[in-house]
Design a protein around this nucleic acid. Structure first.
Lengths: 397, 397
DNA sequence: AAGTTTAGTTTTTGCAAAAAAGTATTAGCG
DNA sequence: CGCTAATACTTTTTTGCAAAAACTAAACTT
């Protein structure tokens, strides 16, 4: 069942237009027509539908600095309608759960933090649902969907967290439970996959129009996510993008995944803190303090951080060999360390197998919010780019 | 310029039908309609066009064993028309150049072997063109396109061999030269990319309907190619799939690419022969003899081959982490060694990051012909799956 | 005020797939 | 032997969407 017909084209063009509007802020129909190669008439029809659905608004700005044309009828810039409805984003990590309401442009409207999730998954989800409901009630706006980014191995089609060792979770049907609770469409995926989607739609991908992005997130462990040709990549299983378990030294330390010498064993926060405990005379209690000491020039701490950076650099070099993205984005607290990022950069560029100039290594543009915006992005993607028209009128609660 | 219209849908459906027919041998219109989700009427129209173009034939077989229905009007199975025209495939490696004429089903009709290509690229290409013209003249059939698979870094859109260290070539505009010589559409790409395409269309991909395939070719060096979602993957540069330069040991031997510990330094034929020379009491002159000695149980040779296999296994494990294909295919002479393949398999499956059952490691189904069929496949892909209708009537020479 | 430029809409046309209705060919059955 | 049912198409009509062309709207120029 994969033949294409008119309707498929229409949905495709609809998604294309929404994405162009998202990327470029307010744009006129004629500009969109030129960019898509569609006729102006087609744009009248397509944007007409989107306006009726409530996804777009006509911006009648008085300033109009963005306009180029100096004569002729004034263009009517179109923009995503931030009044349209909000998405609930839920980011689940071992240390914190964050909930937030996010608009169509990926802007956080309100948010809430919870402590570590309960080891009993049913209980944890119940607590999350409770907090989400108060958050929604407080804001009192229409909610159109829910996105969840969770650590661990997540099967995104069913929305099941197959295994999250750090949470002691296994086969948790997150999507099913939340769909029952909220009666809204729910998207569940790995948290880093959400993050790379957020960077694609609302971060570096938006500002630089990157289409192939690799993402590495350094938390307690190391996770990854991949965007190929402007779309999330899942591969054949749930493990695509698991950069943290790339083997970079066959004689390295054993990893809980069964292999030896995984990146995570060299560059995860847990590994770095352990090194700091054994090598430094005065122990540093947190990652933030390790970074501070290292970046201030203390040689032993700096070397620890650099070792981690080099491990990530090798992982990136290997991703380059396989996928050849033009952009790699690093997120997590380690990405704030100059020392670390310099080591990443220089190691990633050591080989000339492809010109080093082809690679851009960046830190996340969304900062601490990337997990939350990423979770929301999973839902927004469904809405803006794959859903059939007219689903927006569904209202939550 | 990326909006879609009717014509795009039509071309897409056309390519889809061709691919289904290629995969399943003779098939009736109704079966195709069910598989694509298109209406029977649409299939009458689309296959009508393909019949008129000469790409398909109606098979009126008397045997008809394949038929399921027992009553009703008999189906009219459609198949690719092997009489339609041939493609010229050219496989260029440091040791040998192979030319062949290949039909729409990927079957070699006639072929020719040449010695190592001249180090002067212009001269080498001139010789290749000469041999090709005699081959074509001998067969005396219509030629519809040319496909070239060449070692090294190849930019496929322009058809330029950017760098082939083993040939001492740099920036060789293969496509331009051949298009002038033959006045036919020419496709040029890395040879291993051609191979994985051949496996997709005519090998394991065809028989098992695999859509995500990683390929590793072990020659003097180690090359790779990737198919994602039923299509070749190129990434942002020309280096996607360069598994041979994946770093698996940061303290390993230096590689000419600038990095240390590349797979190629552990598993390429050159590396293995060098090891054999230093470690074995009696030197083995060729890879074939090394394999024979190793597989016959000689412990030192077996360990050498196994070390190479483990390096490839780690590379595959790392590709699994990044791309999660369900299939990895190994080609080249080393793939004939049990010893080697066992080491590959066990090393690739050591981690439980994704279930080992999800991974299939196979040896190439096209054997020694994979390079030649791969080169031809590059041209056939263009013809069958991306070209606009009616180009087939172009006739060569 | 007339002309020009740019933006967007309306109307008509063209194209491709879906739907519906019809034709062709076969087996089974009385 | 003719009837019915089943299967595999083909033909005709309808529907849906984008392209083309013609038109309206709103600005500036002279």
């Amino acid at each position: 069942m994969e033949g294409r017909n008119h309707t498929d084209s229409k949905y495709f063009n609809r998604a294309l237009i929404l994405r162009l509007i998202l990327n470029q802020g307010p744009v006129s129909r004629l500009i969109l027509a030129r960019q898509t190669g569609l006729s102006p008439a087609a744009l009248t029809v397509l944007t007409g539908g989107l306006l009726e659905e409530g996804l777009l608004t006509e911006v009648m700005d008085e300033g109009r600095e963005f306009e180029v044309a100096r004569v002729g009828r004034r263009s009517v810039p179109l923009d995503l309608n931030t009044q349209a409805g909000l998405v609930l984003g839920i980011h689940i990590t071992p240390r914190i759960v964050r909930l937030g309401l996010v608009n169509l442009k990926g802007e956080i409207i309100s948010q809430e933090r919870l402590g570590p999730p309960d080891q009993n998954p049913a209980k944890a989800i119940e607590q999350i649902i409770g907090s989400a409901q108060t958050l929604i009630a407080k804001e009192n706006r229409s909610i159109i969907g829910v996105g969840v980014g969770a650590v661990g191995l997540v099967e995104h089609e069913q929305g099941v967290n197959l295994r999250a060792l750090s949470l002691h979770w296994q086969n948790v049907p997150i999507r099913a439970e939340l769909e029952t609770a909220f009666n809204l469409p729910v998207q569940v995926d790995n948290n880093v996959r959400g993050m790379v989607l957020a960077e694609l739609l609302f971060g570096h991908g938006r500002t630089h129009n990157f289409k192939n992005i690799g993402m590495v997130y350094i938390g307690t462990g190391v996770g990854g996510g991949i965007v190929i040709d402007g779309e999330l990549y899942w591969g054949s299983g749930a493990a695509a993008g698991e950069v943290g378990h790339m083997i970079i030294d066959p004689n390295g330390p054993a990893c809980y995944c069964g292999a030896q010498g995984c990146v995570e064993q060299f560059a995860g926060e847990a590994a770095l803190l352990k090194l700091a405990q054994t090598r430094l005379p005065e122990p540093v209690p947190t990652i933030e303090s390790l970074i501070e000491v290292a970046d201030s020039g203390e040689p032993i701490a700096a070397e620890i951080v650099r070792e981690g950076g080099r491990a990530i650099g090798i992982a990136i070099a290997n991703v380059l060999r396989v996928l050849n993205p033009n952009t790699v984005i690093i997120a997590g607290r380690m990405s704030k360390s100059n020392c670390f990022m310099e080591a990443v950069q220089s190691e990633a560029r050591r080989s000339n197998i492809s010109p080093a100039s082809d690679l851009t290594v960046l830190t996340s543009s969304l900062g601490d919010n990337i997990g939350l915006v990423g979770a929301a992005a999973l839902a927004l993607r469904q809405f803006l780019f794959t859903a059939k028209p007219n689903q927006l009128k569904v209202s939550g609660l």
